[in-house]
Design a protein around this nucleic acid. Sequence first.
DNA 1: CGCTAGCCAGCTGCGCTACGCCCCGACCTA
DNA 2: TAGGTCGGGGCGTAGCGCAGCTGGCTAGCG
Lengths: 121, 121
Amino acid sequence: MENIKDKKYYPIREVAQLTGVRESVIRFWEQNFDELKPIKNRVGQRKYMKKDIDVILAIKKLLYDDEYKISGAQKRLKELLEEAAGEQMELFTFDEKMKNRKLNEIRNDLQEALAMLESGG
Amino acid sequence: MENIKDKKYYPIREVAQLTGVRESVIRFWEQNFDELKPIKNRVGQRKYMKKDIDVILAIKKLLYDDEYKISGAQKRLKELLEEAAGEQMELFTFDEKMKNRKLNEIRNDLQEALAMLESGG
DNA sequence: CGCTAGCCAGCTGCGCTACGCCCCGACCTA
DNA sequence: TAGGTCGGGGCGTAGCGCAGCTGGCTAGCG
């Protein structure tokens, strides 16, 4: 079970440390970037997965390195994600795509349930 | 003599109309972008050439379409101009490059002198 | 008189921060 | 087991500071 790590959920404080972005900024970005939607546990606390952290790092680059405005970064991020998704999908046959989709759905459900258990109650 | 048009100098009011950018904004950008340096006539009035207008349009795109911040647009513009210059230069042999450089210097001198005459007095 | 210059105080809203409140778990007391 | 209370993490949001103009001034020139 290699990807057990992928299932770990990080609280906002850890994400802030890992990414070097303040908690308040992470919360602010969440209001502005559809792509940044961590799940929340029973009491409303944010729980981040690896993919969320990647999104934060991508936004950080666009805003602080490339120096886009928020609105510009939104557009660019969407482009980048579409490109990445396109490349991903080209690697699969149709059947594999379907299988992959199902697996992802199930995994997401499990991960959400897990997060509730781990950090919610 | 086709490129006689290239020698025409535009006053700021015309540039504002042509580009759809307010005069005050053009003057403001001039303080922030090294690449936007129109020559000035004897009494200090700005005189724009085609290349200046291209720069303004490039800045406009970066700021209003791509939605960079000023600082980001500065960096991006420099990159774009270097790329363009690089591509240009690759078309020439060494000797041609030298000749081209000389010609450019001479042309610039002539254009400046001309602008003084035409619009300065 | 119209066009433009430079200067600069003022305005708007973007991007972030600081703060007050809430929830929860740990520990005590009975 | 219930009840009290203390501290720490996290929440949302009002407010702050500055980027990016705007517009009004005075002055020079033809």
